[in-house]
Amino acid sequence: MKGILAIYRREMSSYFVSPIAYIVIGFFLVVTGYFFSNILAILIERSFMAQMQAQRFGAPPEMDVPSMVIRNFIGVIATVMLFLIPMMTMGVYAEERKRGTMEMLMTSPISEIQIVIGKYLASLTLFILMLAPTLLYYLVMSRYSEPAMPWRIVWAGYLGIFLLGALLIAIGSFISALTESQIIAGVVTFVIFLLLWVIDLGARGASTTTGEIFKYLSVLQHYDSFSQGVIDTSSIIFYVSLSIFGIFLTLRTLDSMRWRRA
């Protein structure tokens, strides 16, 4: 436990003394902020149009603007994450290997699992710190929201995002453990995330059996139900088990470094 804490604290401090954390968080907030206001503006306009149509033709169609904002915005967050998480994870192990500090960690009286968990928790914390300020957007929105802000959907949606992020971080860390080059780790992670995205785009429209299989396998599909306010246990298990698998692979990779020519 002490080992995990020591690793965690060093990771966190190195995130924040280097510009990487500020760049990632700053970029994330600028982009998501822009999209949030955009989504809001578009949906408000649409709801006005809907209201006008309703006045003209009667039979008012219900339009739940807050829920739609949340759903769309969470989609935006998921997409932006695909670009930013590679930046967060690319150096996690690659940099340690390049500097030779990995050798020090691995000859210290801490186990590899402590190293891996400490680093994973630090990346998760940075991710949460990146995500947290966006909750302010809802706080502002809730003051003017009509119908009332559906907080349950917000929490469910963010749980989905968190689980997706946890998985992407596990994948990114694993790839970082495979190489000594941050750049290679970053690019490969990014390419893999893009592939996930493409698979997802392909799966969304599909209705055949193959499509259904892809739909199930697509990591980006599974947070979708969360953003509709449904906490789906099978999706939770899907994300958690895949994340654990990623962490396990990382662990095996570190272990295998001992058996290879360094």
């Binding site: 002490k2 020591a6 401090s13 003394v17 500090t101 020090m104 960690l105 210290s108 801490i110």
Partner: peptide, 29 residues
Amino acid sequence: RIGYLPETPPLYPEMTVENYLTFVARIKG
């Protein structure tokens, strides 16, 4: 029970000497 200095010293350039040694002391138990 061992201290080890590999051929290239295993340093974190962005840390101060004191923070670095404190970190090493922690992971060394």
